[in-house]
């Protein structure tokens, strides 16, 4: 059981690392949204499920309620994250920011 928790936790942390480095490295605002919105969501799913599995190790009603709350956090994040991403993209489009393309590089 411990090994499952460790694997989930460390893969989630790897996704978080990828998200942060992507935010730093990518060239423009539209492409920075890809790692920021999605890799972080995947990282949250993995790390929170690791914690839920760890909490459920000694099973009781109280621990079961806590694990259910953690699952609810994941559900809420998965509903709200696309909406927030779309709000940011929409703000950029309405303000007239041009997407970075390969031709602009040279």
């Amino acid at each position: 059981m411990k090994i499952i928790v460790m694997i989930l936790l460390f893969s989630g942390l790897a996704f978080f690392t990828g998200g942060s480095i992507g935010i730093l490295r990518l060239p423009d605002f539209y492409s920075r949204l890809h790692p920021a919105g999605k890799l972080d969501t995947a990282g949250q799913l993995l790390t929170l499920s690791a914690i839920a599995v760890f909490v459920l190790q000694d099973f009781s009603l109280h621990n079961f309620l806590t694990a259910t709350k953690i699952v609810l956090i994941v559900i809420i994040v998965y509903i709200t994250s696309p909406t927030a991403t779309h709000a940011i993209v929409d703000a950029g489009v309405r303000a007239g920011l041009k997407p970075w393309t390969k031709e602009d590089q040279s």
């Binding site: 989630g12 998200g19 942060s20 920021a36 949250q44 956090i73 994040v77 927030a84």
Partner: peptide, 9 residues
């Protein structure tokens, strides 16, 4: 936003 999603965890 990225900081906030990490803070949750």
């Amino acid at each position: 936003n990225a900081i906030g999603s990490k803070t949750t965890v």
